[in-house]
Computed example of a mutant assay.
Amino acid sequence: MVKGISRRVVVVDSPDQRFFEQAIFIVRNDAAGEGVTSKELVEEARRVARNYAGGDHGRFSRVWRELSPAVYTLMGAGGIGLVWLIAALA
């Protein structure tokens, strides 16, 4: 079923088309009423796509993502053991 609703979209081409060709952003209906220009919409779409698609989130977060699940398990068990030890000594 097709509805008679038209939407504004911004299409951003991918700089590296190995996996993705385009990103499509659907513009909110009230964005046009706020005095936003087409150029501002495109720049915001590019900024969002760049930040979302793998911007550098820092060395610390990369280290956490690369840790093995076994390390998470050991850290959790150590934390619980520490809480039990503090509770037993108190």
Rank of each mutant, 00 (worst) to 15 (best):
G35L: 02
V48C: 09
A70P: 00
R65M: 15
V42W: 02
G58Y: 01
F25W: 10
Q17M: 03
A45L: 10
G55R: 06
V83D: 06
R65H: 15
V42Y: 03
R59L: 10
I80W: 13
D30R: 02
G76E: 01
V71Y: 12
G81P: 07
R47T: 09
R50G: 05
D16A: 04
A31E: 09
A90P: 03
V2N: 11
R47N: 11
G33S: 07
L67M: 13
E21S: 13
F19H: 11
D30Q: 09
T73M: 11
D30H: 07
F20N: 09
G54E: 05
G76N: 02
D16S: 06
F25S: 04
A77D: 10
G54C: 04
R62T: 12
R62S: 14
G55H: 11
S6E: 05
L41T: 02
A87G: 08
W84L: 14
G4S: 06
R47C: 04
S6D: 03
D13C: 05
G78H: 01
S14H: 13
R46N: 10
G76K: 08
S38T: 04
Y52N: 05
F25H: 04
R18G: 09
R65A: 15
M1E: 11
S68K: 05
H57E: 15
V9Q: 15
R28G: 14
W64G: 05
P69F: 10
